[in-house]
């Protein structure tokens, strides 16, 4: 609503916007095949490479990062707990279970069908998480993320067991470990549905901010609490499922990005939600570029890089002194 004029958020916005632009351009020109900047648009081969591989890959990273950051933000809002995200609360694992089931029972299903099944399973798994998490005592805020981690772990163990029996461990590795190296034109476009979800989240930003005040305050302000809960769950589940199916799950994005943005700009989502999306995109794209460069010409999957970068950021968030001011 009315964001008090302060230079800090503005500076953050400029840095995030500029950073994403620089990352976007560098991502187009970093890779195994040489793509000199000067000839990129004159040489037809180079242009082909740009359009078929580099641009789709960059867009996929941007879409995945923005989506995951928003999904994390919404989960934190709905759980009223800053330390949950789809990858650590059973959402991603449930999505894996869904897609595994479809792959086993109906191998001919299209990617869209698989995504739908994964979304449904993710919705179910996340709803169960929330039903249980709301019973945990609010006096111990760390129990909720802990419960989520183990809950996800148990579903993950079940998924691994089934995949093992069915000899599908190779697939499982693809779904559980985010990697953009296989992204080509024609194989990532489903992620645009995630962009739609981000837009939906933007549209209901005010309502989400109120949700964060709790059930009683929301109802007191005339909000359809149960309805918003459903919308939030659907956004989270669809984004998580899309990521699992198309590029594989990337951990920590949904956790660290909303926390850092909240620390700098506060929680009035009307003002901050675009920066959450932008920073998520930047973080994932940055990690993907690191993964491409660190062992050049080989590639390290973005999921692995994010496990290190995101894990370190998360521990920093956990042990920093509480923010004031």
């Amino acid at each position: 609503m009315i964001v008090a004029a302060s230079k800090k958020p503005l500076r953050f916005g400029v840095v995030a916007g500029l950073g994403l632009t620089i990352l976007f351009v560098s991502s187009l020109f970093v890779g195994v095949s040489d793509l000199p900047f000067r000839t990129a648009f004159s040489d037809p081969d180079a242009l082909q490479l740009l359009l078929v591989s580099r641009l789709p890959r960059t867009l996929a990273a941007v879409l995945a990062g923005a989506g995951l950051a928003i999904a994390g933000l919404i989960m934190q809002t709905l759980a009223r707990n800053r330390f949950v995200e789809p990858a650590t609360a059973g959402t991603a694992q449930s999505a894996e279970l869904g897609i595994l089931a479809v792959t086993l029972l109906w191998p001919a299903a299209t990617l869209a069908m698989k995504t739908l099944a994964a979304s449904g399973a993710a919705l179910l798994g996340t709803s169960i998480f929330f039903m249980t998490a709301h019973r945990l005592p609010p006096s111990q805020p760390f129990l909720v993320p802990l419960f989520g981690l183990v809950y996800g772990g148990v579903i993950g163990a079940g998924v691994t067991f089934i995949a093992w029996q069915a000899d599908l461990l190779q697939y499982l590795a693809i779904w559980t470990n985010g990697d953009f190296s296989g992204v080509l034109r024609g194989r990532y476009e489903l992620l645009w549905v995630g962009a739609l979800m981000v837009a939906l989240a933007w549209f209901v930003a005010d309502r989400l901010t109120i949700m964060a005040l709790g059930r009683d305050a929301s109802i007191g302000l005339g909000l359809d609490y149960a309805g918003m809960m459903r919308i939030g769950l659907i956004i989270v589940s669809v984004i998580a499922a899309l990521n699992v199916v198309v590029v594989g799950m990337i951990p920590f994005v949904g956790l660290v990005v909303p926390n850092i943005v909240s620390r700098i700009m506060g929680d009035n989502l009307r003002g901050t939600i675009k920066w959450v999306a932008l920073s998520g995109a930047g973080l994932v794209l940055g990690c993907d570029i690191i993964g491409r460069l660190i062992r050049y010409p080989y590639e390290i999957p973005v999921g692995t890089v994010m496990g290190v970068v995101g894990g370190a950021l998360f521990l920093w968030l956990l042990f920093r002194r509480p923010a004031h001011g």
């Binding site: 009315i2 964001v3 009223r80 005010d206 901010t209 109120i210 305050a217």
Partner: peptide
Amino acid sequence: RQDSVVASRLRVRELVSFGRF
């Protein structure tokens, strides 16, 4: 409510504004 907890990082004016929602 008596046990209203605001966990969000909102400014006072932002919080009060939500009364108009």
